[in-house]
Amino acid sequence: MATKDEVLEGLAEIVNEIAGIPTEDVELDKSFTDDLDVDSLSMVEVVVAAEERFDVKIPDDEVKNLKTVGDAVNYILTNA
């Protein structure tokens, strides 16, 4: 079971790979769309990469609720 810091670090690496944002800028209160240059298509990539990395299922209906990095970290911690 991953810790909160480990999930954040993993998401930061994923966002860096997909959107080119430096990992240190991927913080809990950051919005994927507004702050991290992750549009709706790239968000699908983030979700698929996170599912594989954290062995979690993130249903399509749930993706719209993951507005910030913190939302995603909490979802993964609760459901992984």
Binding site: L41, V44, E45
Partner: peptide
């Protein structure tokens, strides 16, 4: 199917 890139069509 899940791994097909969402950018494929554009």
């Amino acid at each position: 199917a899940r791994k097909v890139s969402p950018h494929t069509v554009p």
